[in-house]
Computed example of a mutant assay.
Amino acid sequence: MSTTESASNYNHLERMSVQELLENINREDKTVPLAVEKAIPQLEKLVTATVELLQKGGRLFYIGAGTSGRLGIIDASECPPTFGVQQGMVVGLIAGGDSAIREAVEFAEDDQHQAWKDLQKYRITENDIVVGIAASGRTPYVIGGLETCRKHGIATGCIVCNTESAIAAVSDYPVEVITGPEFVTGSTRMKAGTAQKLALNMLTTSTMIRLGRVQGNKMVDMQLSNEKLVGRGNRMLMEELQLAKPEAAALLQKYGSVRAAIEAFRKSDSV
Rank of each mutant, 00 (worst) to 15 (best):
Pro174Ala: 05
Ala134Phe: 03
Lys191Ala: 12
Ser165Asp: 06
Thr179Lys: 03
Ala166Pro: 00
Gly193Tyr: 00
Gly193Thr: 05
His152Ala: 13
Val177Gln: 01
Arg123Cys: 11
Ile133Tyr: 08
Thr139Tyr: 01
Arg123Leu: 10
Gly153Asp: 07
Lys151Cys: 08
Pro140Val: 02
Met89Phe: 07
Glu78Cys: 13
Pro81Ala: 05
Lys151Ile: 02
Ile133Trp: 06
Cys79Lys: 04
Gln114Ile: 12
Gln87Cys: 09
Ala166Glu: 12
Phe107Val: 14
Ser77Asn: 13
Ala100Cys: 08
Ala195Glu: 00
Ala166Lys: 14
Glu109Thr: 06
Ile124Ser: 09
Gly144Val: 06
Glu176Trp: 06
Ser136Gly: 14
Arg189Ser: 07
Thr188Gly: 06
Val170Ser: 03
Ser77Glu: 10
Met190Gly: 05
Gln87Trp: 06
Thr194Cys: 10
Met190Leu: 15
Thr188Leu: 03
Lys191Gln: 02
Ala195Ile: 02
Val175Asn: 02
Val90Asn: 01
Gln86Cys: 07
Gly132Ala: 12
Thr148Val: 04
Gly157Val: 01
Gly96Lys: 01
Asp118Val: 12
Val130Thr: 04
Cys161Thr: 08
Ile129Asp: 05
Glu147Gln: 11
Asp118Ser: 11
His113Ser: 13
Thr125Tyr: 02
Ile124Glu: 02
Asn127Ile: 06
Gly157Asp: 03
Arg138Trp: 06
Gln112Asn: 08
Arg150Thr: 14
Thr82Cys: 10
Ala95Phe: 00
Ala192His: 14
Thr125Glu: 00
Cys149Val: 05
Gly132Val: 10
Gln86Leu: 10
Arg138Val: 13
Thr194Tyr: 11
Glu103Asp: 11
